Amino acid sequence: MDMKTVREDARKKLKGFCRVCPVCDGRVCAGEVPGMGGLGTASSFRANIEALARVRLQMRTIHPVKEPKLSFSLWGRTLSMPILVAPMTGSTYNMGGAMTEEQFVAELAAGALQAGTIAMTGDGADPSMFGSGLAAGKANRASTIAIIKPRAQEVIVSYLRQAEEAGVLATGMDVDGAGLVTMAMKGQPVGPKTFEELREVIGATQLPFIVKGVMTVDEAEAAVRAGAAAIVVSNHGGRVLDSVPGAAEVLPAIADRVKGKAMVFADGGVRSGTDVLKLLALGADAVLIGRPMITAVYGGGRDGVALALNQLRNELLQAMLLTGTADVGQVARSILAP
């Protein structure tokens, strides 16, 4: 199996919901929500790509770094790389339905484990989607992270109990899902949370809690004050609000303010190991990757996911060697060109 074959097979199975473009930048699928595109003009999707493209690395080859450290410790688990699979749902209405929701999330989770890392699992317009994610991790305890939509408080607490019972490594909420079109279409109410409501749900579990969808310094600080163990700097792949900056644009200021108080993850527009290193240099502790994993799982199942993740890891290793970066846990912002 190689990535060319994976991409060709994925293009057939995704049935036009994703064209598996040579450059995944949101132009062809603009406005296709449900589907794989960004909301409206897809400017927020493209902003993720463009923000990362503007970041440049300084190449250095006269240094002692010969075997960079890529392993990453996360709440007691040692991962092979600081790259996790982002939470994704909607195989039937976003991706054409060639895989059931259960198959989709199970193969993503298994492929991540095969590559030595883990997947976040999501919540969606069909309530059974959250359960599918929990089932994907039950065979290997602490092998997935369950992310919940900003539903009613009592529903979130119920989902937290299910996540605890399933033995997930951590849980959390993608607060940026507050206005998701697909949730509204399917009669699943979601909405913004007050600081007090956020603190209440975080306090309802002993699991590490992640607040996903943070794009401003003040909300990052609020999430940390509410008790979050981690935040994810993310604009939800450009799928919830048009005209939002790319994650790489806002990440440095957020990381400067809260890193060390909580873990800082980032996602949006990651297409290579070089992109991963850029986000680490901008302040992320780890990076989530979404759409490329859909191509990988539809084109090659768990083996395709592991292949794609290992390719990213190898690209990250190469970029570290060529920037003099010894450890993914200590990526200096000085490797970035001024």
Rank of each mutant, 00 (worst) to 15 (best):
K15A: 15
L322M: 09
P208D: 06
P87F: 09
R54I: 01
G187N: 00
G38E: 14
L52G: 06
A184N: 06
E8W: 00
D9P: 00
L207C: 11
T5P: 05
R46D: 15
L282D: 01
A115V: 01
G260E: 02
L288V: 06
S132A: 14
T323V: 05
D123Q: 10
V217Y: 00
D327R: 05
G260I: 04
L322D: 04
I254E: 04
T323K: 07
G37I: 12
G179C: 09
T295W: 07
T41G: 12
A247M: 10
I62G: 00
M293G: 12
T205I: 07
M320V: 06
F265S: 07
A228C: 12
M88Y: 01
L309M: 09
I148S: 02
G35T: 14
K193E: 12
A86C: 13
G187C: 03
A42W: 13
G329D: 06
F209C: 14
K12G: 00
A166W: 12
M263V: 08
M3K: 15
L251N: 10
S128Y: 03
R19L: 12
A135S: 09
I118P: 02
V168F: 10
L207V: 13
A319E: 07
L160D: 05
V217W: 01
G167F: 10
V85G: 15
A152N: 10
C18P: 04
A286F: 04
V33G: 03
A170M: 11
L134D: 02
A109E: 02
L317V: 08
A106E: 02
G35C: 03
R11S: 03
G273M: 08
G97W: 06
K138F: 01
E164K: 12
N310P: 04
V190H: 04
L57I: 08
G203P: 09
F209Q: 13
A115C: 03
R60Q: 06
A112N: 02
D242T: 01
G177R: 04
K66D: 10
G237F: 11
I83V: 15
I145V: 15
S272M: 02
G16W: 09
L336C: 10
N235T: 14
V33F: 13
L108R: 10
F130D: 00
Q318C: 08
D275K: 03
R54G: 15
G260N: 03
D123E: 01
V214D: 07
L251S: 02
G329Y: 01
Q153A: 13
